[in-house]
Design a protein around this nucleic acid. Structure first.
Lengths: 232, 232
DNA sequence: TTATGTGAAAGCGTTCACAGCC
DNA sequence: GGCTGTGAACGCTTTCACATAA
């Protein structure tokens, strides 16, 4: 029983939460450079956001800055990290070891951010037993045991679209409550389970939409017009 | 000179544009199932959105439905596809062929959505000349020629964080105007260039935030409380 | 009768601008 | 004097609810 007070639960906006990891990364980089203190303006620039936005975001977590001075890099880093859950090292399992799943299993960006890939699962018999990045691939049939033994609450789905919902249902049934979905399908989950979708094709399509606009009329920058403002 | 009228440029909200690919995918799936007509309610469910939202989104494109009936699947698919730029087949180049870049080069989800990976580029001499998915890896030094000969306006950056901004600058200098960034860095680009970021570590951190909240208090679903509503 | 298309309302998120504190 | 923290204004997004059309 850690924190009991329920109404104390801070209502941090979802948009802010999505930016906290960006701030963390910027702070890590500053710390590496030996910078001890930073202003909201400079940190905002490093994170690619407006400085007012940064200050408002941080104000949801608490008052960690010093007026007239700025923020202590290490202290702020610790506070944001604690909020995001970096104190903990989260075990993660990956289901589906095609090209993408295999790349994710080897991806170093997870471990550097407080996640540890603890199990790999695939349904194809030829994948099972394969050795990837220090782990052997388990059979989908053994999913129950894999989840139970690792205690993972977070799973990555990188299966073909057709298999994703079934895998998701099984994971949820075994107690997984956070899913990162790379499959090109909309997953339906019960309340209390969080899903984030990464659809690579979709990202390119959004770029293509803007690209098409640009080629329609070279002066168009993203639907709005650049320059030609105040034609003297 | 295709469409000249500048003020005719429809102001489709960014949030809507981001959902169009989702609708396209749902429509493709319906078409495969042989379904010819669909209501906003059913399509919204397949896409995982509210039906009012779907109708409002589609209304920005035009009036493609029939009152009292619904939408013709193939016709709507064509209209959305045209808007997003699926008519065109977009050439894409990938820079950085580590685990992730290699997986992307092999990823089938791009070609099925109107994109063709036309060139692979890496700075490491041991990568250059490697044969991946029907393409040989070019040297970063040859970037100018690669962009010129392929005519790609869209590039994927999957380099280490430290190299990303320099690669980005070179790409932009060579005329690339849309970038999908997998590197864990904030890219700075001139106006008129679109960047979309996919940060896998960040996605997990957002899930971890919510996960932490859940373990603080098992009754908490995402900051809000579930059940216990109307305690009889 | 049924389901779209859309003004109007409500809800969020961002930005401004300045009071408060070092 | 300088920079944080924050109410208030603004703008964008979602949802409602109904007029409109088949």
């Amino acid at each position: 029983m850690t924190r009991i007070a329920p109404t104390t639960t801070k209502g941090i906006p979802e948009a802010t939460i999505a930016r906290l990891p960006v701030y963390l990364r910027a702070l890590a980089s500053l710390a590496d450079q030996g910078i001890a203190t930073i202003s909201s303006g400079a940190l905002a620039e490093a994170a690619g956001v407006n400085s007012a936005q940064l200050r408002k975001d941080l104000s949801y977590l608490g008052s960690y800055g010093t007026r007239g001075v700025g923020y202590n890099v290490e202290y702020l880093r610790f506070q944001i990290g604690r909020e995001v859950g970096s104190a903990h090292e989260w075990p993660v399992i990956i289901v589906g070891l095609g090209n993408l799943g295999t790349a994710l299993a080897n991806y170093s960006g997870f471990s550097s951010r407080g996640f540890r890939v603890v199990a790999l699962v695939d349904s194809a018999p030829e994948q099972v037993g394969r050795w990837i990045h220090g782990l052997t691939v388990s059979a989908l049939d053994d999913l129950e045991q894999v989840v139970a033994s690792t205690g993972a609450a977070i799973a990555v789905i990188a299966t073909p679209p057709g298999a994703a919902q079934a895998v998701c249902d099984r994971l949820v049934g075994l107690g997984v409550t956070s899913i990162l979905n790379f499959a090109a399908t909309v997953l339906v989950v019960p309340e209390g389970v969080n899903v984030r979708k990464v659809d690579l094709g979709q990202e390119l399509q959004i770029l293509a939409y803007h690209e098409q606009r640009k080629s329609d009329d070279p002066r168009v920058f993203d639907g709005a017009y650049a320059a030609e403002v105040t034609p003297a």
